[in-house]
Amino acid sequence: MSAHAPLSLLCLPCAGASAAMYLRWRRFLSPSVRVVPVELPGRGARMGEAFVEDFGALVARICAEQADAMRSDFAIFGHSMGGLLAHGMARRLQAARRPLPRALLVSGCAAPSRRDPSRLDGGEDDASLIAELRKQGGTPQEVFASDELMRITLDTLRADRRVCRSHVDDTAGAPPLPLPVHVFAGRQDDLEASAIAAWSQETADVFTLDWFAGGHFFLRQHETGFLAALARRLSAQTHLHAH
């Protein structure tokens, strides 16, 4: 890789959200990283499309749609559900013997082998989902204030919960990923620390785990510190591979 070709960072959103959440990162990350928000069907600029509610089908669709971005140097980042999708993509590329990302980066997400399906047992009615959004703390106040935005968010969240429910960790027999895995987590998130640390078993390469103050959306609450850590992990990759 030439020292000048930027690393494409494919960014996958959390449940209920649009990938537009990542646009602001472009102002903070160095020009050596090209932020590529990966919009999923049914939200943001793709609002008119049907949701894809099956995990495997969604991963296959993302891999097909992002084939161009994955031709040059790239890494994959995902928050929460996005972390699960990012891992699914890396595993799909590995199984297909396609070029792999420089690194897999996940935040606010339990390792696939340690997911707790009972987290999705809550009600699917509006009141239950709104309570969940308030508890997680990542939803802007103006969404709660607007019936239309709330409806869009709840429809998206319902579809995404189906995606998460349909996830099966079928990598038990697969070799670990031959690439670095960098994990970021909030100390006040209600995910178990051991379930986050279990990401170390997914890689045969470098594993890092950075903890931050804050809950599930620590990456917003402490954006400056989080993006500095993200940039540090990414620059380790680019320096490693610059010839």
Rank of each mutant, 00 (worst) to 15 (best):
D169V: 00
G56S: 00
V143A: 05
P175M: 05
F226S: 11
F55P: 07
L40N: 13
V106Y: 01
L9K: 07
A127Q: 12
L227Q: 14
L154Y: 08
V181H: 08
T153L: 14
H182A: 06
I76C: 01
P140C: 09
R34D: 10
R71L: 00
E53F: 12
W199G: 05
H243G: 14
A172E: 13
P37V: 04
T203F: 08
M1K: 10
A95Q: 12
A60T: 08
E39V: 01
A17L: 01
G88Q: 03
R115S: 00
A228Q: 09
R43W: 02
R151V: 12
Q136K: 12
A172M: 11
H243L: 15
T224F: 15
L240K: 14
D125A: 06
R220A: 15
W211L: 08
V38S: 01
A96D: 09
R162H: 04
H167E: 04
Q201M: 06
E49K: 08
V52N: 06
A17K: 02
L230N: 11
Q94H: 00
A64D: 09
R92W: 03
A197T: 08
G44N: 02
R187Q: 15
R102W: 13
A242W: 10
V38G: 03
A15G: 09
E39N: 09
L105F: 02
S8M: 12
T156Y: 09
L100I: 02
D205H: 13
A195K: 05
S18R: 12
G122H: 14
M81L: 04
E49L: 07
V181R: 02
R115V: 08
